[in-house]
Design a protein around this nucleic acid. Sequence first.
DNA 1: TCTGGGGTCCTAGGACCC
DNA 2: TCTGGGGTCCTAGGACCC
Length: 421
Amino acid sequence: MMVAVVSKGGQGERQVSASGVDSSRATVLHVDMDAFFASVELLEHPELVHRPVIIGHEGGRGVVTSANYAARRFGVRSAMPVARALRLCPQAVVLRPHHAKYRDASQEVMAIFRDVTPLVEPLSIDEAFLDVAGAVRLFGPPAQIAAALRERVHRQTGLTCSVGAGATKFIAKLASTRAKPDGLLVVPPEQTLEFLHPLPIDALWGVGPSTRDALLRRGIRTVRDLAETPPHVLTGWIGAGAGGKLHDLAWGRDPRRVHTGRTEKSIGHENTFGVDVRDVDALRRELLDQADRVAVRLRQGGHRARTVSLKVRFADFTTITRSHTLPEATDLARRIHEETTSLLEAADLRGRAVRLLGTRGEQLVDADDEVPGLWSDDEQWRGAETASDRAVLRFGRGAVQPAALLSPRRDRRERLADGAP
DNA sequence: TCTGGGGTCCTAGGACCC
DNA sequence: TCTGGGGTCCTAGGACCC
């Protein structure tokens, strides 16, 4: 292979391929922490480092949220039921997760990334894209930046990470996956297709079990097969959106830039009961607790939700969602609970056993918007200083109608309920 | 010992408006 | 009175990711 693999594996950096790779144009890095939750826990349990370690809840319905590589050697994987993981690896140590600890560790490594470049786009708690094009003059070519980054993360936090470098986000992400654990893989732009085409289709971002099976049924096994399938044929199989996108990816085309400042689009909380629940009062109590958690997080983030949604999973794992868009965005637990309980009632459970309940606030708007979201694209509206300025803009001076101002989108049924003509 | 919890994005139909 | 078409919003479901 002509791409450069530099891997660390505990014995210092070694160059696996010495082909003098030019990384200068592989300016997108994808950094992925190795077995993140397990690694953070092991910092406090050094005696367990060489033993199989699983993070998750033992007993009941828990799944593996993270496993170290000693456990993965036994076939243990994320999202696998803990019970099954323990059958594969009975000697594994199971530790319960501590999310606050992982958030702290995440902030520490993200801060290190931002020391390298301000163009950091966190993807999740344990991975991020970095655009290092502007850092090259200061710190050298991307391969050198990535090696220094890996070294610093390890020195400062005791954690290891893997880094992929490529011309696009997608290639960088694939490369980091192939570099794991504790490695670095650079894919120079001119070698993108050579790297990409032999891979199985489910290596592509967005190809999960369902799309994979649909493609396998038609004899598409590798990225090369996908690339050689005409786009219109592909879209006939898997839909216009996915088909076009996958065909582009199969040719290494990915126009997405690294951008900072992603905004949250929804905030939710859900819970799987230890034992399925039929008692409606117990379901309502759970929804109250969830409404409270969601409301607190909305307020902490300075958001309000325009839409409240309820998720119900039954004992047979069928899942329904019900949602309602409010006349006014809210960050109040009482309001959210009102909505979820009435959605629950309308869903007509007929005494079915419920396995999971979830509450989510969607269509988030800034809490300080007077009329959330309605005129967000209107420059004049944005320019208005006060609520009364906005009322004048909306309704004309002297014609302010407080009820209408607060809920201009309410449907007729609700206005009638308020006594409107 | 069947299948967590946090999300994002896409599709598709109907309502509604112009 | 034979019925278009585009745009947006709302809702439900599903695929996918970590």
